[in-house]
Structures are given as structure tokens and as C-alpha cells.
Design a protein around this nucleic acid. Structure first.
Lengths: 133, 133
DNA sequence: TTACATAGTGTTATATTATAACAAAATAAA
DNA sequence: TTTATTTTGTTATAATATAACACTATGTAA
């Protein structure tokens, strides 16, 4: 019998959490996700955090460290993301993922003077967006 | 009478917190700072967080967002810091501030394609340090 | 199929990080 | 001085995140 390829390798909770994050217009906080999925039977923080951890691991979402919030990855389709950059508006709180090959290339090849070899980076820019400036 | 210039514009709590952070070999967490200064009469979290906020504002320390920890600024002497970059070893947890004019210049002048004007950025590199790799 | 390993779930409790709110004291400026 | 501003001390609580454990589902290989 031919081997069936699973189309979707996400578990139930992972899919629920990802759906919410993908539908959102901006970064979501873990507990706001929790409140939004309680009707779907997810009741406790660990269920959310476990899904978030997995989604980050497989590159479906990113954590905005300065905001403790989570956004869907829209730039690289489903790849594990080791190089992330975001622009954050300090006025309206809008967050955008920056997809710029030259930036990403520059940083990915950057080597610290102290001899560290980087595997991953996260860059967060702050300022005023088009609308707010 | 000639105006006296204050040599040190930090308040008592701010100085205590800064001293601890400057003496530390790596990033310190807010509550670990708290436990370390209880002998000096600082008893509650708000006293720590207020000092930390002020020290960040005047550029004496930085927050490592991915670790919720604080380090003294060693690169720019006492300037307000709008452009920070760190290397973080994923094995030994060592954190170093990166002072590289070309990196800082590159990022400071970077403009998002979406028309945002940046005031500030924070970059965190992850990898293995010299010792750990 | 069975046996086993791995990943995911549900749950309770608790740890960790951070802020709100308010009154009092210290400092700076007019 | 008087007034404004900053800093402090304090209690309480909000917000973010993980530990631990028993159980279920799924994947893999004999």
C-alpha cells in the first residue's frame, strides 16, 4: 500500500493556536490566546505555551521578545527561522516582519570579533511607522 | 555663588542597583538583584524596577530581552543607548555587548521598505562562544 | 497485529517577572 | 521660602511562564 503523507503535521492544539495567531492583525500575548481558545476546550497555560514552543521551533511563528508576544511568520514559508527582524511602531504598536535579503545576509554572515559563530539572531527596530510619524 | 555641579546624578537606589550590575560577570535578573540588596534596605520589587527603568533610560544598563536580564553598558560611556547589540552563548549563557561601528552604522541607517523611520534597535545574536564551540 | 517509543494532552499548582496605587520624604527650581 | 518634581517605601496584585504527573494518541518496527 502506498505510504500516506500527512498533509498537516500539527497537532490539534498547535493548529488551534496557529490559526488564532495567523488571523490576528498584530502580535498576540499568550494569555490573550488562552482566553480566545477556551471555547475550544483549551483551559490552561501549559497547553498554550507548549503549542507556542513547538510553533516557534518549526518556524511558523516568532516571539517578539520586547513585547512577550507572538506573530505568525509571513516571510519564509514554513522554514525554520533563525534570522528574524521586526519593525515596531512605538506609537500604534504595529509590528512588521522585515524581509530583506541584504539585511539578512549581512547579519547572518556577521561574525563577532570575539570569535563567536552565530547560529541565529533576532533584531527589533523601534520607531514610528508611516502613519504615526 | 558659583553653581555646584553634581558629580553623580544617580539616586541612592539607582546607585546601589547599578553597582551590583556593574560588578556582575553576566546579566542579572531583577529578583536576583533584589535578593542581593535586601541587606542594604531595599525590600520590594518596585524599588528595583524603578531603578532599572531609570538606568536603562540614561543608558547605564541594557535589558537583554530574550533573557529578562540586565547588563551594564560597557561600550558607550554614559550615552543614552539607542543602538544595542549582544552576542549570547547558548551553551554557557555568556553575554557580550558588541561594539562595532560598522554594524551600528549599518543598522542605524537602515530604513525599512515600508517607510518607517527608526529611532532605536536591539539585536541579539545566539550561538556558541569561543570556549564552547 | 503487537510491542515499544515518542509526542501530545489535560490538570493542578506554583514559580517568575512586572506593575498599580498611594502616602511620605528628599531634592531641585522658582 | 514655596512649589514642583523626583525618589522612596509599602502593600497588593497583575502578567508571564514552567514543573510535575498521569494519561492518550500517534508513529515505527518486529
Amino acid at each position: 500500500m502506498t505510504r500516506m503523507l500527512k498533509e498537516n503535521n500539527l497537532s490539534k492544539n498547535q493548529q488551534i493556536v496557529l490559526d488564532i495567531i495567523e488571523k490576528a492583525k498584530g502580535p498576540l500575548k499568550a494569555y490573550s490566546i488562552l482566553f480566545n481558545v477556551q471555547k475550544k476546550g483549551i483551559k490552561a497555560p501549559p497547553q498554550i505555551y507548549r503549542a507556542l514552543d513547538k510553533l516557534i521551533e518549526i518556524g511558523k511563528i516568532h516571539k517578539i521578545e520586547s513585547k512577550n508576544a507572538f506573530v505568525a511568520c509571513r516571510s519564509s514559508n514554513c522554514e525554520i527561522s533563525k534570522a528574524t527582524a521586526f519593525s515596531i511602531c512605538e506609537s500604534c504598536e504595529k509590528v512588521d516582519e522585515i524581509s530583506d535579503k541584504s539585511l539578512s545576509k549581512y547579519l547572518s554572515s556577521y561574525n563577532d570579533k570575539k570569535g563567536m559563530k552565530f547560529k541565529k539572531f533576532n533584531l527589533e527596530f523601534f520607531g514610528l511607522c508611516k502613519k504615526c510619524k
